[in-house]
Design a protein around this nucleic acid. Structure first.
Length: 559
DNA sequence: CGTCTTTGACCCGCGC
DNA sequence: GCGCGGGTCAAAGACG
């Protein structure tokens, strides 16, 4: 596997949850809802509010690598999308950079956020007022520092962009050549929360740049509980082939997603497309259309998601069947192997394993592309997202996430690799209310949303009714039943109309304070990234091939 | 009764 | 060529 040939998309979602713990060492993928409950018995109620989500999305599909980091920020978050690509193009280096306005890289944002939070938390003790002021001054200083850093980052970004364009040019030339042999890699990282998963880090090749980009990160570390509010989007693309057209090229910048230290919680989605399909189209399409079924090419596509959640699994929205489990050498935690059961011959498989460094982090790797149509809802969502360029999919952060929810009924994801809906089980730290996320919807049908933040509350702003899932909330979908009896294709269930991605907040700026907004910001960032692919892929019947039809949607707080 | 999870064994690829 | 590790298969058990 020459890395050069494969594409990768990584999405890191970092969330922090205090809450739920499966406790069980085994992380069982949510698939078996019923069982999960038994074993894992996650306590929704326990989920406490803080969650930090870091989403790193790597898209390999097109041959371009993109990194997007989203950190919770106070200031306007999103907007970076566009920049992100550029940044990413620059390669890894760019990662954290992005939002100029927001204050710089997501990391910084986080720090800022943290800073504020810290003082704020101070309760209202009057006695502490003086101290608070001191802290404020300190914070201001930090802010200034951060600003400076931001400037530096901007420079880096500019440089990156420049490089990006150059690469693009080269890429274009390169693309003209036969792609078959050419390897292409695209990596896209979305990191929310500013922290990057260790694994991601490991991958990251250029740490220096990262450091440069995210100086503040360290600060984050300090605050575990903090929601880093910074959303940074960086795109890194390295594509050697045509597929990559859309995005940028990157050179092999590794994913840099971030520092491990922060392992607090994050979800990382990483998709890497290893093989360019024999037919270039496939790759471009995301391999969707082609039923190639179990093509090797399909298998090569990989997406990994790292989510920090104590919950046993992350729900991706698809139906999976566990076919094996093994202990990997470097990680004491067993790795579980799942196969997509949505369609009989679906080549897609996924591996679920907990992060050694941070057991609360669940790493899910998807491989291959679905050879069956994705759920309409998912598709619709994906399309919506892509179209809007805004939000691609629903990402829900649910702290509740019991596996059950997850396992519940996962309709296929919009994207071939990832289901549009990813559920992160974990309680959001930030939300005091524990886990509301998945609330009703999730529970019953098993929401297939990717929940990034536990703050359901934030999301809550939107009426639950708004949240509609591609598939009916029927219990049947949900539980094991969904799987068992429910092997029926998910796509049959839902109507496109049903799906309504929550509109992203117009003002990114507002996001900062609100978790909801934050999530929205993330969604936006993701959507941007995804959008590209999504559109492309969607072009073909909107099947799963989209790599990233991800829509971030906030759910109403659960009760 | 049917389906899914669990678990051990087998096979394949890679590195030394 | 050997050993190691990863991934997959298949039988048995458990659960709904």
């Amino acid at each position: 596997m020459s890395s050069s040939k494969r594409k990768r998309a990584d999405i890191d979602l970092e969330r922090r949850d205090d809450d739920v713990d499966d406790g069980s060492g085994d992380h069982q993928p949510g698939e078996a809802a019923p069982r999960v409950q038994k074993e894992g018995q996650i306590k929704e109620g326990e989920a406490q509010a803080k969650e930090v989500v870091e989403v790193v999305v790597d898209r390999g599909g097109d041959g371009s690598k993109e990194e997007i980091k989203c950190g919770t920020q106070q200031g306007g978050v999103m907007e970076e999308d566009k920049q992100s690509p550029a940044a990413s193009a620059g390669n890894d280096g760019a990662d954290g950079i992005d939002d100029e306005e927001s204050g710089g890289g997501g990391t910084r944002a986080e720090e800022e956020h943290m800073v504020e939070a810290a003082p704020g938390d101070g309760d209202g003790d009057h006695d502490h007022t003086a101290m608070a002021q001191d802290e404020l001054s300190t914070m201001q200083e930090e802010m200034e520092k951060m600003k400076e850093e931001n400037k530096m980052l901007r420079r880096v970004v500019d440089r990156t962009v420049r490089d990006y364009y150059e690469l693009q040019t080269k890429l274009a030339a390169y693309q003209k050549q036969p792609a078959d042999q050419e390897p292409k890699e695209t990596e896209v990282f979305l990191s929310l929360g500013g922290t990057a998963p260790a694994a991601a880090v490991a991958e990251a090749k250029s740490k220096e740049e990262q450091a440069a980009l995210r100086p503040s990160v360290g600060s984050d570390d300090t605050d575990d509980g903090r929601e880093g509010l910074g959303l940074s989007l960086s795109l890194r693309t390295s594509s050697y082939e045509d597929e990559a057209r859309r995005d940028v090229v990157d050179g092999g910048a590794p994913d840099i997603v971030s520092d491990v230290g922060k392992a607090r919680g994050y979800a990382l989605l990483e998709s890497s497309r290893m093989s360019p399909p024999a037919s270039g189209d496939l790759a471009a399409a995301g391999g969707i259309g082609s039923q190639q079924g179990v093509n090797a090419a399909n298998r090569k596509t990989r997406v990994s998601v790292r989510v920090r959640c104590q919950g046993p699994t992350m729900n991706d929205g698809c139906q999976w069947r566990k076919y094996g489990q093994k202990v990997a050498k470097g990680n004491p935690c067993p790795r579980a192997y799942y196969r997509c059961t949505v369609a009989p011959a679906c080549p897609v498989r996924k591996q679920v394993q907990r992060c050694q460094e941070d057991m609360s982090i669940l790493i899910t790797t998807y491989e291959g592309t679905h050879n069956h149509p994705l759920p309409v809802g998912a598709t619709a969502m994906a399309s919506t997202a892509t179209a809007g360029a805004g939000a691609a999919t629903f990402m829900l952060l649910s702290s509740t996430s019991s596996d059950a929810a997850v396992s519940g009924g996962p309709p296929p994801a919009s994207s071939s690799y990832l289901s549009p809906y990813l559920q992160l089980n974990s309680s959001s730290q930030y939300h005091s209310s524990a886990s509301p996320l998945m609330s009703g919807n999730m529970g019953g049908g098993g929401a297939q949303h990717l929940s990034m933040f536990g703050h359901s509350s934030a999301l809550a702003s939107q009426p639950a009714t708004l949240l509609k899932y591609p598939w009916p909330p029927n219990p049947s979908h949900g539980g094991a039943a969904g799987l068992g009896g429910g092997k029926r294709p998910f796509w049959g269930t839902g109507g496109v109309d049903d799906v309504r991605p929550t509109p992203l907040p117009d003002n990114a700026g507002t996001m900062a304070s609100d978790p909801n907004q934050f999530s929205a910001a993330i969604a936006t960032a993701i959507s941007n990234v995804i959008g590209k692919d999504g559109q492309a892929t969607r072009s073909k019947e909107g099947e799963s091939s989209n790599k990233w039809g991800v829509v971030v949607e906030s759910l109403p707080p659960h009760e």
